[in-house]
Simulated assay, not measured.
Amino acid sequence: MKIKNLKIWALAAVAIVALAGCTQDEDYKTAEFTPLVLAEDFLHSADNTPLVITNWENIATAGTAKWKQQIYQGNGYAEFTSYQSGEPSNIGWLVSPAVSMDVAEGEILRFQVSQSYVSNTVSNKLEVLISSDYDGTNFAAATWTPLQANLPTVDANYFVFQDSGEIDLSGYTGNIHVAFKVTGGTANAIDGSYQIDNVRIYHN
């Protein structure tokens, strides 16, 4: 009787090990199906200098202020500010490389964002936009559509990053570009700053 019981327990142990092994394999394979299509952590230029990233565009369409590289305690992030620009209006665009929407399905955009000294999000605002017809050269002729994201309000703590939330891009095909656009300027003290970090596009 004892021998039979030992055999039963042995078979049960083998079954448990086999099931555990299958679960681990499934978890590993599931992770493989959510690859990063775009990942940017913003650590490329010297601290407090214009941000230069291969295949990204840093464009000023009003005034001369551009997105800058900022580094704090070893962490890099992108920042746009009109502070001390001396110009009544500043508009800066940070445009991603082309990202293909035809590789898989269920694409999601997600990033971290914070603000500092923003007192009016109408005049001093951050917008997240997407274009499916930008050819990489004719920026002004492209169509840029706003994306809904969880962006900081004037009450948000300064320099405290918050999650944008998952932004669904699954309705797009072909190549897309994502842009972060900040409007500001020294007129009417609309000279607050916005910070962006950990930009990700991945498959859900």
Rank of each mutant, 00 (worst) to 15 (best):
I91K: 02
Y72V: 15
S82G: 11
Q112V: 12
E107D: 13
A65R: 07
G92Y: 02
M101Q: 10
Y77N: 10
V113M: 02
V95Y: 03
T81L: 01
G86K: 02
M101R: 01
G92N: 00
L109N: 01
I108H: 04
K66E: 07
F111I: 11
Q73Y: 10
N90G: 15
G76N: 02
Q70P: 07
D102M: 03
P97V: 12
S85P: 04
S114A: 14
T81I: 14
S100V: 13
W67E: 04
N75P: 08
L94N: 02
V103G: 07
F80V: 12
G86A: 06
K66D: 04
F111H: 01
S96D: 02
Q115G: 10
Y77L: 05
A65C: 12
V99Y: 08
W93M: 09
P88V: 08
V95F: 07
G76A: 07
G74L: 04
S116P: 04
L109P: 06
M101V: 13
S116T: 12
E107V: 11
S114R: 01
I108M: 08
R110D: 11
L109Q: 04
Y83H: 13
G106S: 02
S85Q: 02
Q69V: 14
G106H: 00
E79H: 06
Q69R: 01
I91C: 09
K66C: 11
E79W: 07
V113T: 11
Q70G: 14
I91E: 09
E105V: 11
W67H: 05
G106N: 05
D102G: 12
W67F: 14
Q70L: 14
Q70R: 07
E107A: 15
Q70E: 14
G86I: 06
E107K: 08
F80Q: 04
S82K: 00
A65M: 10
E105N: 14
I71D: 00
S96G: 06
L109T: 13
G76L: 01
W93R: 03
L94D: 05
S89W: 03
Q112P: 09
T64M: 03
Q84P: 10
N90K: 04
Y72R: 11
V113G: 05
Q112W: 08
G106R: 01
Q115A: 15
Q84S: 15
E87F: 15
R110S: 12
I71Q: 00
A78S: 04
E107G: 14
G106L: 03
G86S: 03
G106C: 07
W67L: 11
L94R: 01
G74A: 07
P88N: 07
M101D: 10
D102W: 06
S114V: 13
Q84K: 08
E79Q: 13
Y72T: 11
I108C: 14
W93K: 03
Q84H: 09
S100Q: 00
A78D: 00
Y83K: 06
T64V: 15
F80E: 00
P88K: 12
T64E: 02
R110N: 11
